[in-house]
Design a protein around this nucleic acid. Structure first.
Length: 453
RNA sequence: GUGGGUAUAGCUCAGCUGGUAGAGCGCUGCGUUGUGGUCGCAGAUGUCGCGGGUUCGAGUCCCGUUACUCACCCCA
């Protein structure tokens, strides 16, 4: 068989890279559980009509088909393209057996058939947290999910700095209504304003007039609003005054502004130099189901990746006609975040195998003795492996060195034992029933490298 | 879906106006015969993406094709 070529958009990690990923996934799950979120997993497929509702056809759903399909086939199922749509279905399906407000986390793969690019894949992992209420969900839960995700990002200490950008759709819609932009024009204006991070303000202004059909004055006001963001060196409510200064008056604007200010204020204590939060009034999140708070997250030095962590408030994603289930959630793009960092070698593992110890093998006759040493170490939770072949000890040490295994264990013919730290060369007598490596050597560690220019 | 770029050793890549395949790293062995790393010496490895064409001769030029990749669109 000839050598297989990579499949575009389906990234795979080498063992040390996968180690970084499992560390991230474990940290996320642990943090979410610390905040009382229960883990769930939904099936990988949903009925096509569920996936394609609400004009989501642009999501490029992968449709499932049996290879040896007989007759007309089934109604049609496809792989889910995010975790929010399956979750909405899950809530409706199990509503009778769930406690509300329901807080869950969900870490799974999703699939989209779009053209792959840096940070954009056809198969990728997302980590979602959502809180869903029955009929009502108080605003303080918006603050809560934000705090949970900030906490999780803070615990991923090996990541570059990042900036959580928050806005509020009530604020935008109230402002637009206050200046006379309403109806179908609102979504179009938001979509165009959302491009401010890529296009010149003048270009965006021109698009607003030409494509969204707003007046020059309205375009100026929209731009003035969108360029407001809270900066690090001012009091957290500074942006509120600047919005007020635009002189627009609308009840929805007031409500959104109050919420946004409360959110930023409520999360300020979790921000530090590396993980920041700011109000950014250009954030709109396309034309999705969001109705209030919206999030995006930029990774320092990787702004071109787009948002690595997005979400917001949706007041009616799930409804059975009698009851509606408002929710608020954030989704972290684990693959989008990790693949670029790992492929550049900016994060990695201190070794490519879990083994902390290689038990040397003198000859095949003594394999059972070496196995016994390994068993003794493992009984005390020390990961280890026995040398594959009784090569010269120099070769066995090199085997360990190549893999980053820090210790090699030698059993003498006289029954004595010695363990060598191959980094320092230090070799000492040791007892398989008592010796323990330093804590930092017990498991591989996530390592970071300075970014090469 | 639209437009550009690329495809040569395990990896990163060089290969001129066409003349029979190269480097670095890695790998294997030896020096050092059962304690590695440094250093030195030696060695192995290629359907030059695939198919066709031009030519005495194609990695190189032309056509087609596939894959990868970048941008647009959209998004985690």
């Amino acid at each position: 068989m000839s050598k297989p070529t990579p499949l575009s958009g389906f990234p795979e990690f080498l063992p040390d890279q996968r180690f970084v990923e499992t560390e991230v996934l474990a940290t996320l799950a642990r943090t979410f559980e610390l905040h009382g979120f229960a883990g769930i997993e939904t099936r990988a497929v949903e009925p096509l009509d569920q996936l394609l509702r609400k004009g989501e056809t642009s999501k490029e759903v992968y449709v499932l088909r049996r290879l040896h399909e007989e007759g007309g086939g089934d109604a049609g199922i496809g792989l889910h393209f995010d975790l929010t749509v399956p979750f909405a279905r899950y809530v409706l399906e199990h509503a009778g057996r769930l406690e509300f407000p329901f807080r869950r986390y969900q870490i799974q793969r999703a699939w989209r058939g779009e053209r792959p690019q840096e940070g954009r894949f056809r198969e990728f992992t997302q980590a979602d947290i959502d809180i869903v209420g029955r009929d009502v969900l108080p605003f303080h839960h918006d603050v809560e999910v934000t705090r949970v995700m900030l906490d999780a990002l803070r615990r991923l200490e090996f990541l570059p700095g990042l900036r959580l950008q928050v806005n509020n759709r009530k604020l935008i819609q109230g402002f637009y209504a206050g200046i006379g932009v309403e109806g179908d024009g609102v979504d179009e204006v938001m979509r165009i304003v959302d491009k401010l991070d890529k296009l010149e303000p003048g270009k965006v202004r021109a698009m607003l007039v030409e494509e969204a059909g707003v007046t020059d004055d309205q375009a100026d006001q929209c731009l003035a609003l969108a360029t407001i963001h809270s900066s690090d060196d001012e009091a957290d409510d500074g942006f509120v005054a600047r919005v007020r200064a635009l002189g627009v008056d609308h009840p929805l604007l007031d409500e959104g502004l109050d919420e946004l200010a409360a959110l930023v204020r409520g999360c300020a204590d979790l921000a530090d130099d590396r993980v920041r939060i700011e109000a950014d009034l250009s954030i709109a999140r396309g034309l999705d189901y969001y109705t209030g708070t919206v999030f995006e997250t930029r990774l320092d030095g990787f702004e071109s990746l787009g948002s690595i962590c997005s979400g917001g408030r949706y007041d009616s994603l799930a409804s059975d006609g009698r009851t509606t289930y408002p929710g608020v959630g954030i989704s972290l793009g684990v693959s989008r975040l990790l693949v670029p960092l790992v492929q550049r070698g900016l994060v990695g593992a201190s070794r490519v195998v879990p083994s902390a110890v290689l038990v040397a093998l003198a000859d095949e006759e003594s394999r059972s003795a070496s196995d016994a040493i390994a068993t003794a170490l493992r009984s005390r939770d020390i990961p280890c492996e026995v040398a594959a072949a009784p090569q010269k000890f120099g070769k066995q040490i090199r085997y360990a060195e190549r893999r980053g295994i820090p210790f090699v264990w030698f059993a003498g013919a006289d029954g004595g034992h010695e363990v060598k730290d191959i980094r320092s060369g230090e070799q000492v007598a040791a007892d398989p029933a008592a010796w323990t490596p330093p804590t930092e050597d017990l498991r591989p560690q996530v390592t970071t490298n300075e970014r090469e220019q």
